[in-house]
């Protein structure tokens, strides 16, 4: 290798180093710039973040998010509650809806509505108005005008309702048939042949105190102190033939009382008696016939079939509970 070659190689190396140096300068410079940028940006960013947080907090406080969540729920309900068919119909009705909205948002309409709503706002201060007051108020010109408007609105609503009904009128064929029937006269009904429709007799169901509400307000428990009229086999009965103390009741007593009442306690009668007993224990009121029918799914007729004479009282006696009060 000679010197010229060496020099050439050195010059190349130097040139490379220069290039590297220049790149380094560039990198350092960029680094410096981005450092500056960050140091400048940090306070601004901090500021921005702070403001954003407080803003979001404010929004939350104002209930925007809660509103949004609710709105999503509403949207969900709307979507699940409506079938595509409904939406299609809505589409057909959109023109009508828009027209209605336009009519409702005319300035004069809005003016009236806002006036009316002002009154509603102050409704807590309104004086109560009796019938006479109402009659007196009709002398007022404005009230008369308002009534005329209401009447007109009602007239239009009625007319529209009629139009809607007419749309669903029976077909021409049905009308023809009706016309024909009109000419021929009504079909003769079979003389005296009105079949009496009695509710089907329901088989007695096991008497479970169904989900009945509290007894009717008219059935009040008797609070009179009860006197012992007779003691039979160690059990005290009142003058009305009911147990003086419902708590001493046993099934043996029930069988004996039923025998005196002329009733044989079979399974269906037991079901009724057990229901009456359970209902009394739950409510402290002896059930009347209506309540027994509601609680046992027996018809009134069935109750009278099972206990022909004074059913509610007979049942109460057998069940060892007081005489049912109330008129029904």
């Amino acid at each position: 290798m000679d010197t010229t070659d060496t020099n050439k190689a050195l010059a190349q190396v130097l040139a490379r180093l220069d290039a590297i140096d220049a790149r380094l300068d560039q990198i350092v410079d960029r680094q410096k710039k981005s450092d500056e940028l960050f140091s400048e940006m940090t306070p601004i960013l901090r500021d921005v973040m702070g403001t954003a947080t407080t803003r979001l907090d404010e929004l939350d406080k104002k209930g925007y998010f809660a509103f949004g969540r609710e709105a999503l729920g509403v949207a969900d309900r709307v979507i699940t509650g409506f079938a595509p068919e409904d939406v299609r119909q809505l589409g057909d009705a959109v023109v009508g809806i828009l027209q209605t909205v336009r009519a409702l948002t005319q300035p004069n309409v809005l003016e009236i509505a806002s006036q009316a709503s002002e009154v509603l706002e102050k409704s807590d201060q309104a004086e109560p108005l009796g019938l006479l007051g109402m009659v007196r108020a009709t002398r007022d010109d404005d009230v008369q005008k308002g009534m005329a408007v209401m009447m007109d609105v009602m007239r239009h609503v009625g007319r529209a309702a009629r139009a809607v009904r007419d749309e669903h009128r029976p077909s021409a064929a049905d009308e023809k048939k009706a016309k024909l029937a009109g000419v021929l006269g009504p079909r003769k009904k079979k003389a005296l042949g009105v079949e009496r429709q009695l509710p089907p007799t329901v088989a007695p169901r096991a008497a479970a105190p169904a989900n009945l509400g509290p007894p009717a307000a008219c059935a009040v428990p008797s609070s009179k102190p009860r006197e012992v009229a007779a003691v039979i086999d160690g059990v005290a009965f009142g003058a009305d033939g009911h147990l003086v103390d419902p708590k001493v009741w046993t099934e043996e007593i029930a069988v004996k009382v039923a025998a005196v009442q002329g009733v044989e306690l079979d399974e269906s009668r037991w079901a009724v008696v057990r229901f009456a007993r359970a209902d009394f224990v739950a409510t402290n009121v002896s059930p009347n016939i209506r309540r027994i029918t509601q609680g046992t799914s027996l018809a009134t007729k069935d109750i009278y079939t099972l206990f022909p004479k004074a059913p509610a009282r007979t049942i109460a006696r057998i069940a060892g509970i007081p005489k049912p009060a109330g008129c029904i």
Partner: peptide
């Protein structure tokens, strides 16, 4: 009500 009460009283 009178009629019903009568029936209920046998």
């Amino acid at each position: 009500i009178l009629g019903n009460a009568a029936r209920q009283s046998g």
